[in-house]
Amino acid sequence: MKNDVLRLFFALGCPPELAEGIATWRSSLHLPGRPVATANLHLTLAFLGQQPRARVAQMQDLASEVRATAFDLHLDRLGRQRNGLLYLAPSHTPEALLELVEQLYSNLSSAAIQLDSRPFRAHLSLLRHCPTQAIDANPSFDWPVSRFSLFASEQNARGSHYRQLHTWPLLRDEQEGSFTAE
C-alpha cells in the first residue's frame, strides 16, 4: 500500500530568511531550468529512499544518538552537474558537517539501512534541468547550522513538498551531554 511507505532523507533545512535570499539571488541569474521551491531548499545529509512508515520511529531513535556540534556553513561556490542540476556548495566543507554525516551514516548502517555508496558532497540544489551555468555569479551565503532534521518527500499537484518529521539540535561548543529533540 502506498501510504505504508515514505521517501525519507536527513537534511539541514534552509532557514526561511536565508532560503528567500538564495531564491532572490538565483532569480537574478536569469538561468533556464526548473527552480527548486524556496520552501524545499535544503542540504541532504543522508538519503534513505523508500522506507516503511513503521520505521520512522527507528530513524528518529538513531538520529537522537548523534552528538555533533553546531557550525557555520559558507556557501560560496556555484556548480552544475552533467544532468543539469545547478547547486550552491561550500569551497571548504566544515569538519563538523563531515562528522555529523559520518555519525548519521554509522548509526544508519548499524541498523542495516542501505545508503547511497557515493561519497558525501555538501550542496544545496537550486535548479533542475539547467543547460548552462552563470559565469559571473559570485555567491556568498552564511548559514549558521544549529539543527538537522528528518524529512519526507511527498508529491502533490504542484510537485514535491518536503515535510519535516522531526528535528534535533546540534551541540554548541559549551554544551555537553544530552539534549532534547524538538
Rank of each mutant, 00 (worst) to 15 (best):
R121K: 08
G79E: 05
E65S: 09
D76H: 03
S160A: 15
Q58H: 13
S146E: 15
A137D: 08
A134V: 10
A111V: 04
S125H: 06
W143A: 05
L98E: 03
L73S: 05
A89F: 07
R158D: 09
L150S: 11
L98D: 02
F141T: 07
G84A: 09
P139V: 04
E154C: 10
A122W: 00
A68Y: 10
V56Q: 14
E154L: 11
T69Y: 12
E102L: 02
S109T: 02
T132Y: 05
R82H: 10
V101H: 09
L98Q: 11
D72I: 01
L150D: 12
A70N: 07
E99Q: 13
N107C: 05
H129G: 08
S91F: 08
L124R: 10
S64Q: 05
C130F: 07
S64W: 01
D136T: 15
W143N: 03
S153C: 11
H129N: 14
L97Q: 01
Q155E: 13
S140M: 12
Y87F: 10
A57C: 11
C130R: 07
L62H: 03
S64N: 00
A111T: 05
A63T: 00
D142R: 15
Q58E: 15
L86T: 10
G79N: 08
L85H: 11
A54D: 15
R128V: 09
S109N: 10
R121I: 09
E102T: 12
A134F: 04
R82A: 12
Q60F: 04
S149A: 15
H123Y: 03
L97A: 03
G159D: 08
P90T: 01
R80N: 00
E154R: 13
L150K: 13
T132F: 02
R77D: 04
E95F: 01
S140P: 12
G79M: 00
L97E: 00
D142I: 15
H92A: 14
H123V: 10
L126G: 09
R121E: 09
H129V: 08
T132W: 03
Q133S: 02
T69H: 13
A57S: 15
L85P: 07
P131R: 02
S160V: 14
D142C: 15
R67A: 09
H92M: 04
L75P: 05
Q60G: 14
F151W: 14
A68P: 02
L86M: 11
S146A: 13
N83P: 00
R158L: 01
A70K: 04
S91A: 06
L98W: 08
S125T: 15
E95P: 02
A157Y: 06
A134P: 11
R67K: 07
R82Y: 00
Q81N: 12
A122H: 05
R158H: 08
A57E: 15
P131E: 04
I135F: 06
L75K: 05
D76M: 04
R82F: 03
A152K: 14
S153G: 12
A134E: 09
L73E: 04
P94F: 09
Q60E: 15
P119Y: 01
D136G: 11
P131A: 05
S117R: 14
L104S: 08
A57M: 10
A68D: 02
S110P: 09
S110Y: 03
L62N: 01
S91C: 10
